[in-house]
């Protein structure tokens, strides 16, 4: 029985390799003259697009209060159990605010579930990817590090409104 011809079967020119090798060489040669994509990182910083999921941050309103109402959904949905919220009562109209809001950045996996589940758009993924700490305690971010003014997050909030 004659063997069935497969699309993989090579023709004569392909079988003698040389033209194909030449094609391959030309491809790499062409690439040598293309512009580089490497960034000189510490000097040159990558500014991510709005869809980027950097470290999660809390939205700080213009009146310096947090948007968060400490509902605890982010904490519940977090697959890595990175978030701890301790609610308390406030005299503001929203009644409830996070007395304590801690994200353990060693546990965080940047999945963005917290952002997705948040009913208030209070926790969003920022563009910040530079996370450095030298011990485990420093990796636990409290409200002081998490609260970011709302203007700085306008990109992401707009992205969420359009695509979430």
């Amino acid at each position: 029985m004659p063997q069935k011809k497969r699309s993989k079967d090579l023709n004569f020119l392909e079988k003698i390799y040389l033209p194909e090798i030449f094609n391959g060489l030309m491809l790499t040669l062409k690439n040598m003259f293309r512009p580089n994509v490497t960034m000189q990182y510490p000097e040159q910083k990558f500014i991510p697009p709005a869809s980027y999921r950097g470290r999660p941050v809390l939205v700080k309103e213009n009146d310096d209060t947090e948007r968060c109402v400490a509902c605890g959904l982010c904490s519940r949905v977090c697959p890595a159990l990175a978030i701890e919220v301790q609610p308390d009562e406030t005299a503001l109209e929203k009644e409830r605010f996070p007395k304590l809001f801690e994200i353990n950045m060693l546990r965080c996996i940047f999945c963005g579930f917290c952002e997705e589940v948040c009913p208030e758009e209070a926790i969003v993924m920022s563009k910040d990817y530079e996370l450095v700490y030298t011990n485990r305690e420093d990796a636990i971010y409290g409200k002081d590090k998490l609260l970011v003014p709302v203007e700085e997050l306008s990109d992401r909030l707009e992205f969420l409104r359009n695509f979430k």
Binding site: T28, L29, N31, M32, F33, R34, P35, N36, V37, T38, Q40
Partner: peptide, 10 residues
């Protein structure tokens, strides 16, 4: 260097 250029690196 040449490997970098071929791969659009520096």
């Amino acid at each position: 260097k040449i490997s970098a250029w071929a791969q659009n690196r520096i």
